[in-house]
Simulated assay, not measured.
Amino acid sequence: MVLETLTPPVSPSIGMTDKPEIKIARTDFGDGYTQTTPLGINHIRRVVTLRWNVLALDDKEAIEGFLVRHGGYKPFFYRIPREPAVLKWTCDDWNTSRNTGGFASIEATFRQSFDLRT
């Protein structure tokens, strides 16, 4: 299966949130000692929230259609603006709103994917 690349018709608005999701196993012992270990080799995953604040309805439909088509679980490629690398992502959390003047906005949370599909 060949993964699609998200190429939105409009770049996201300025103000992206970038928060790592870190998976570790932690065991606390009775004497105050704690032992931690990473859960897997890819235990740090990027989670970014992108916003498109002013979209024409056709542009909103194009972005939302891409996300719906991937169903929240199918990975896709996307390059964050002004970053050099294309990374693999999934998106299972987004919302849209209609603004005045026939415009819309989208906020979507992308999670870095380590899925083996390419």
Rank of each mutant, 00 (worst) to 15 (best):
R82Q: 15
E4A: 15
P20T: 03
R117N: 14
K74L: 15
R111P: 06
F77K: 04
N42K: 12
M16E: 13
S97R: 14
N99M: 03
F110P: 01
R82T: 13
L67Y: 01
H70L: 07
F66N: 04
W94S: 05
G40F: 04
T109I: 04
T17Y: 06
Y33F: 08
K88H: 09
L50V: 11
G102R: 09
E21C: 04
H70I: 01
W94T: 14
H70K: 15
S113E: 09
T17P: 09
I80M: 15
P81T: 08
L50Q: 04
G101R: 08
R117I: 02
R117D: 03
P81N: 11
A108R: 03
G71W: 10
S97Y: 07
H43T: 10
T36L: 11
P38K: 10
P38D: 09
R46W: 07
I80V: 15
S97F: 07
F76G: 01
K74Y: 13
L3I: 10
P38Q: 10
G101M: 00
K23G: 05
T100Y: 10
S13C: 08
G40T: 06
T27D: 01
G30C: 05
P75Q: 08
S13A: 11
R69Y: 13
P84W: 01
F29Y: 06
I22K: 01
D93V: 12
S11Y: 08
T34M: 05
N95C: 12
P8S: 03
R82S: 14
F29R: 00
Q112Y: 12
P8L: 00
R98C: 08
C91I: 00
I80L: 14
K23F: 06
I22R: 02
N42Y: 05
M1L: 14
V54W: 06
M16Y: 08
A25M: 02
D18T: 02
T109S: 12
D92E: 11
P20A: 02
T27P: 01
R111I: 09
D18Y: 04
D31V: 08
I14N: 10
A104K: 05
V10P: 09
D58F: 00
V48D: 05
K88L: 06
S105N: 13
L39P: 05
K23I: 08
T34D: 04
S11V: 12
M1F: 13
I106F: 07
A56M: 11
G15E: 00
R51K: 15
I41H: 10
H43Y: 14
Y78E: 06
W89D: 12
A85T: 15
P9G: 01
E4P: 09
T36E: 13
L6E: 00
L57Y: 11
A108Y: 02
K19L: 10
P12E: 02
N99R: 15
